[in-house]
Amino acid sequence: MSAVNQQVEASVADDLVRWEAVRAARRRQGVFGFQIMVGVTFLLFWEWVAGPWVDPFFISEPSAIWARLLQLAGSGALLNHLSITLYATVVGFLIGSSVGFGTGFLFGRFQLVADVFDPYITAIYSLPKIALAPLFIMWFGIGIESKIAMAAVIVFFLVFLNTYSGVRDVNKIYVDTFKVVGATELQILRHVVWPSATTWVLTGLKVSVPYALIGTVVGEFMSSNRGMGYLIAESSALFDTAGVFAGLLVLGVVGAFINSMLKRVEKRLLRWK
C-alpha cells in the first residue's frame, strides 16, 4: 500500500514540476509579446509623427532609415565600416585586457609595487580617457592604430582594477587551508587565487567590452576615413539624418549582441554561483 502511495505522491510531484515549467514558459511568451508590441507601437508612432508634427530633417522616419540601411548594406559600405570598427574594438580589447590582467595580477601579488605606483595609476585613471584621443591621433595617425589605442586604454583600466581587487580579495581561510597541507605558492595561485579572482576579472571584461566599442567609435568621430563612427559623423555632416540613425541602429544591435554573448559565457564560467 505504501508503495502505491509513494507512486501517487511521486506523480503528483511530477505534475507540479511540469505545471511550474508551463507557467514559466507562458510568462516568457507573454513578456516577449509585450516587448514586440512596445517596439512596433514606438515605430508606428515615430512614422506618424515624422512629417506632419516634426520635421523629418531632425528625426527622419523609420521607413527612410530602413531604406538607407538596406542601401548601405547593399553597396557593401556597411560591412566595410562595421568590420573596421569591430576589428579595432576586438584588437583594442585583447591588448587592453591582457595588459590590464597581467598588471593587475602583479600589483595584487606584490604589495610594494602597488604602493609605489598607486598615485600614478589613480591620476591616470581619474583622467577622462576620451581626452587622450587627440594625443593618440598625433602618435598613431588617423588610421586604425589610434582607435585600437583608444579602446585598449579604456579596457586596460577596467580590467586592471578588477583583477587587482580580485587578487586582493582572496579569502584568507582558503589560502591557510592550503598552506597547512604544505601546498606550494604555485599551487595556491592555481587552485585558490586564480579561480577566486575570476569572478572579478570576468566582471571587468564584461564591463569593458561596450567601453571598447565606445573608445573606437569616439576615435573614429575625431578623425578617420572609415568605420561606424566615421559613417555616423559623415552622415551628420551631410545632414543625412536617416544615415545617422542607420549607423546608430547598427551599433545598438552589435552592442546588444555582444552583451548577450558575454552573459552566456559568464553564466557558463560561474556555474558554481
Binding site: V180, V181, G182, A183, P195, T198, W272
Partner: peptide, 28 residues
C-alpha cells in the same frame, strides 16, 4: 602531515564536493 578545519567554510565555492575533497590530496 596536518589537517586544518575552521568554523568558517574552507570549501572552495568553485569546486564541486568531490573536487574539493580530492583537491588537497592532489596538492600533496
Amino acid at each position: 602531515k596536518l589537517g586544518y578545519m575552521t568554523q568558517q567554510d574552507s570549501l572552495l565555492p568553485w569546486k564541486t564536493a568531490l573536487q574539493n575533497v580530492a583537491l588537497l590530496s592532489k596538492v600533496k
